[in-house]
Simulated scan of single mutants.
Amino acid sequence: MKAIWKGFFSYSLVGLANTLIHWQIFFVLRVAAGLDQALSNFAAFCVAALFSSYVNALYTFEARVSATGYVLFLCVMGGLSYTVGYLGDRWHLHGLLTVTAFSLISLVVGFPLSRFLVFRGQRT
C-alpha cells in the first residue's frame, strides 16, 4: 500500500498549482468570454493538465511517460471535467461549486490514473 501512495504529497503540491491554473482559466472563460461551464471546465482542464503532466514527470513520479496512458488519462479526466461542467450548467450551480467538485474528483481519480497509466516504470 505504501508504494501506491508514494509521491502523493508531491502530486498534491503540483495539484494545488494545477488547481490555481485551472480555476483562473475557468473563470476567465466563464465570466470574460461568456462560455458555458462545460466548455470552460474542459478547456481549463486541458491547459492545467499540460502543466501538471510536465511537472509530475520531473518531480513526482520520476518515471517515463506512457503516450498511450497519457491519451487515456486525458480522455477520462477530460470527459469528467466536461461532465461536471455540464451538470453545473444543467443544475444552474455556481461556477465555484463546479470547479471545487471537479478539483476533488480530479485529486481522487487523477492520482491513480497518473501513477498507473501515465507514469510507469523507472526513468532510464
Rank of each mutant, 00 (worst) to 15 (best):
M1V: 13
K2L: 07
K2T: 14
A3F: 08
W5E: 04
F8L: 15
F9S: 12
F9V: 10
S10A: 15
Y11S: 06
S12R: 01
S12C: 09
S12E: 03
V14N: 04
L16C: 10
N18P: 00
N18R: 02
N18M: 00
T19Y: 11
I21K: 06
Q24C: 15
V28M: 14
V28H: 09
L29P: 10
L29N: 11
R30G: 05
V31A: 06
G34P: 08
L35I: 04
L35A: 10
D36R: 06
A38W: 10
N41C: 13
F42C: 07
F45K: 06
F45V: 02
A49Q: 07
L50N: 07
S52F: 05
S53G: 15
Y54A: 08
A57E: 14
A57S: 14
A57Q: 11
L58E: 09
T60S: 05
E62C: 12
E62S: 15
E62L: 12
V65W: 01
V65Y: 01
A67R: 12
G69F: 03
G69Y: 03
Y70G: 00
V71L: 11
V71S: 01
V71T: 10
V76G: 04
V76N: 04
M77I: 07
G78W: 00
L80Q: 04
S81Y: 08
Y82P: 05
Y82S: 08
T83Y: 08
T83K: 00
V84F: 04
V84H: 00
G85Q: 06
W91Y: 06
W91E: 13
L93S: 05
L93G: 01
H94I: 04
H94D: 12
G95N: 11
L97H: 10
T98F: 02
V99A: 00
T100I: 13
A101R: 00
S103P: 09
L104I: 15
S106E: 11
S106D: 13
L107I: 06
V109P: 01
F111I: 04
P112T: 12
S114G: 10
S114C: 06
S114H: 07
R115N: 09
R115V: 03
F116C: 05
L117W: 12
L117R: 05
L117P: 06
R120G: 07
R120P: 08
Q122K: 15
T124A: 12
